[in-house]
Design a protein around this nucleic acid. Structure first.
Lengths: 236, 236
DNA sequence: CGTATCATTGACCGGGCTCAAACGCCGTGG
DNA sequence: CCACGGCGTTTGAGCCCGGTCAATGATACG
């Protein structure tokens, strides 16, 4: 019933695609990928490290290689809204011009592949198909944002949690991870700031779901039991 | 204190850029624009008309020419989240592949320029700079989405209203509209569904703001008085 | 003039927030 | 090795913002 942060389980090497800078640009040829690698560098971060800050000039693009990175927007330094959790293969700030509109920080240990904006622009300039990839990527990012806006504006606490957990499970599963006891590396505060709730409400709602037999809370993990039934009315 | 829908004020021709299909592609040459025009068509809509529906196959791109178009996502047909209000010059579903992720409906009379997806893709395929425009456009759309997520998750009702009104004013002002008595063509329900509130809360909060002297409620319009002072702590 | 829809206001309630305390885990230093 | 303190989690008590239900007024429309 208590917490025993098993962060290492998340920094574990992943067997598949995302180990390269462009799990996203998987449509690129091997030669392109190799050259792209040389233009950027792998940067390791430890828990809570900040990759970039809202308002700062945007000089690089980022791609998560290992771990989880939280993307968030703050105001007055007290209120925070985590807009997404980036996983290996996800790209950050690929089209940001000028200044960062959001901040990013590592949730636990992480490795990020970083490339200066000009170098990437130059690389893409004579590879028109790369732009198409980027457009497709941004389109799915926008679709995700719409989903989250609906959740934030129109779902109750319990439904927010269930949808969040099932989506999180689906994303990890798509990366080939073991999700039976679903790893939940982010803190209760992170979850709260992502769903527009408070820490207390997150704890209470999770406890309620556990009492009802919908989930089982383990240290650093959550086992999803009959969320399908509970979430049925909650799915699109 | 009551409502006298002055929708016509919003269908009024606008003097500047957005009268063309691509207020967005304003960087295009005149020749390009003229050809683009011939590939699409101007379609008039009346209030509440649906442009496209979430889940339907996406066959066209849209660009608002006159009026306001609400973009929304629904679930179970009762809950609705309006993710944005599109104004003249705004592009809709430009990069959507497959099916629409959202629906769109006219808020009052509107004129929309529509082009089949294949035709636009063909037009853009040998004009690489068009893709760059699209990427920039989507980047600002994503930044807007982050703003809205913050509002939905971390702002109280009063702050949501104030921020919404000031942003709306700024957008209209950028289009060269008269915003002193700020036109508010959307219904209270639309505003509620955009801010994650109920109709009653929107009414009550607006009334409270009026009582406090921050705004003045007129039929179809709202005059912003000292929102600067009230909104000061609410701005980023 | 009757009807439907929207806006507004009131009464009431409840979900989620606030404040507070207890607990477990971990790192630190004696 | 253990005591201590800090941090994150959990749980309780109480309250308030905002939702629900309901009634009234106002407006557009047929």
């Amino acid at each position: 019933m208590t917490k025993l942060m098993a962060a290492s389980s998340f920094a574990a090497p992943c067997a598949n695609a995302a180990a390269q800078p462009g799990g996203f640009l998987s449509h690129l040829g091997a030669a392109d990928l190799r050259q792209l690698m040389t233009l950027g560098e792998r940067v390791p971060y430890t828990s809570q490290d900040v990759l970039f800050t809202q308002g700062a000039p945007a000089g690089k693009c980022f791609s998560v290689v290992e771990g989880v990175v939280g993307i968030y927007r703050t105001e007055c330094d007290n209120r925070r809204q985590i807009t997404s959790f980036a996983l290996p293969g996800d790209i950050l700030e690929i089209a940001t011009q000028g200044h960062h509109e959001v901040s990013a920080a590592a949730i636990g240990p992480a490795v990020v592949w970083e490339i200066p904006r000009e170098k990437f622009a130059q690389f893409a300039s004579h590879r028109p198909y790369v732009l198409n990839e980027i457009v497709a990527l941004m389109a799915t990012e926008i679709a995700d944002a719409h989903d989250k806006m609906f959740s934030l504006g129109r779902r109750a606490a319990e439904e927010k949690l269930i949808v969040f957990l099932t989506h999180w499970r689906d994303r990890l599963a798509r990366l080939g991870r073991d999700v039976d006891p679903l790893p939940v590396p982010m803190s209760r505060r992170d979850i709260a700031d992502h769903l527009g709730l408070t820490v207390e409400t997150v704890c209470r709602t999770l406890a309620k779901l556990e009492r009802r037999g919908a989930i089982e809370i383990l240290p650093g993990r959550i086992r999803l039991l009959d969320t399908e039934a509970v979430a049925a009315p909650a799915l699109a």
